[in-house]
Design a protein around this nucleic acid. Sequence first.
DNA 1: TCCCCTCGAGTTCA
DNA 2: CTCGAGGGGA
Length: 707
Amino acid sequence: MSASPPTDAQRERAAKLRRELHEHNRRYHVDASPTITDQQYDELLEELARLEAEHPDLAAEDSPTRRVGGEPIEGFETVPHAVPMLSIDNTYDRDELRAWYERTLKALAKEQTPEDSSGSPLFVEGGPEQAAEIRLACEPKVDGVALSLRYENGSLVRAVTRGDGTRGDDVTHNVRTIRAIPLALRASTEAERPAVLEARGEVFMPDDVFTEVNRQREAEGLDLFMNPRNSTAGSLKQKDPAKVVRGLRFFAHGLGEVEPAEAFASHGGFLAALREFGLPTNPAIDTASGFDEAWRYIENFDQRRGELGYATDGVVLKVDRLADQAVLGATSKSPRWCVAFKFPAERVRTVLRGVEVQVGKTGKLTPRAVMDPVLVAGTTVRHATLHNFGEVARKDLRVGDTVVIEKAGEIIPQVIEAVVDERPEDAKPIAPPDACPVCATGVQIETVEDQETARYCPNPDCPAQLRERLIHFAGRKQMDIDALGDKTVHQLVDAGLLTSIGDVFRLHEKRDAIVALDRMAEKKADNLLAGIEASKARGLARVLGSLTIRHVGGSGGKAIARGFGSLDALRAADVEAIAAVDDIGPITAASLHDFLHSDAGRTVFDDLSAAGVDLTEPMAAASRESTESPFAGRKIVLTGTLESFTRPDLAEKLESLGAKVTGSVSKNTDLLIAGEAAGSKLDKAARLGVEVWDEAKLLEALAETAG
DNA sequence: TCCCCTCGAGTTCA
DNA sequence: CTCGAGGGGA
């Protein structure tokens, strides 16, 4: 084929085809009112593809033809999200949902000033203090795969899965094949198009597509997909874009990074803007004024959700006004301005065949139900945790019983109850173990008000516990020892090469024995030893968080390590000194202190120290500067009216200097800054002997700090 | 003293 | 993901 330069007519024809194809896509997916048949669409697409093939310089980056035939990729690159993709808080009942609404109403009423109530979705009744209702956006919670689409200067540059919320997999090559997702944003003028736009939404597979896909797979002798969601996820993970299932759909429902920061006033407003850009949104979205209307939407939606042709598992309510969303903010996991109401999970019956006992890293004995395999919410379930033996007794479960199970949050199977009417004659009661199934030590029974809750194996050297503690120790969020996963730990413990945490750092002395193990070779052993060596540099915070000390996990370890700076300082501290650390209370402090001065604790730390593990941590910036800034590391409370600052501004300023600003005076308070008309806080500070400064003294100290 | 929030621990399947 | 419980603000 000779690549002759295209004629003007051909050039125009190609441009026209591209415009038309984009427009037909938009009509189909955004407006849900196609004006041509799929076949006609395919004919136009083919004509364009032919033109582009004959004249490669006609091929544009955002051409609809680019949706097919991209090159397969090697692996998935993990990329960070500019703005984290948080998850949404769930509730399953009306009262909880109402509680969320009331909380939100209260939080907003507090912030609401008369000035911002102009055109505000908060309907003010009886004065500015009493906001009556909030406008809520109500949208179906589509059961698909969350995606973040990044458009730069109008072109789709990247599509990333949610991943862990901070980083996800780059699946751009597959997403480009999805017709519902525009390769370029539509804009009547350049100026209207944001330089950067990240749209978040859900890719999903309609039921009829799913049925068709499985019909084809069956014909081809392939394994069938479990459900549309798995199928969608499977599609996005294809290395070859040609294998992505056709007919996936997409609804946008949120925003990530936007440049320039858009001045949308409401959620509804930006959804409308997204539609203008050509991004589909769910037509079933509506708004409600207040809780009762939102609840009616939910009930109504529940009635008709079976007719949508795609899977939904609930309704998401969002505070519509973006300014209100900003006021509400987010917890570390999810925004406070939205909540998902989930419809009750599917319940299924099966037969309980037996109960296994697992020994956890804390020694807790957990009963685990073994059942006849049964399909629940898309996966085959054989096991379910029964939490503890107290629960088994309360539910009066017997082996042989027919039991009702469901999946909590569609993920973790739970046994709800036994069907007593169908209990066979020979159903066997479940006897709680009196001894640890692994080390045979007599159990300890924990009770609450004489009711049994959990049973524990009290033997700290129990091999099962040790194994679990080692797995935890080596875990990614703890010491992050790459090559030491649960399989390897099992092997090493069984071979007698690991009998304590400290042994991990003596493994290099036993290299020959390791190499001799099954499915272990020189290279793997050296990998392991290198991983262990590297883990020595993790620092005290990780070490503390990895040792399974009661009440001390990752963040507790961090707080303590930053508070003391080194193991030596921590060992010298008494319980009160430990409890003085921010976020550490008396119970955690006592537990840690006990551990530090127990035989087991002394041994493990001596071992780690001897191995050269880093047992120090840079202290929190706050206390490191303690000699320089008079505020660093101190708990400060503000009260009264200040001349030169608003209280929030001052709080921010002091925090930047390393102070911890809190709201109420207690014996832990180091300093009270009292402005005019200070009230009860001043009295209390005087009573507790807390240092008090007036504004003049504050300004003086700030000036010194600055200079 | 009462709530709200966060953390820790246990957990299933592909 | 969910539970229970510790920590800390109101």
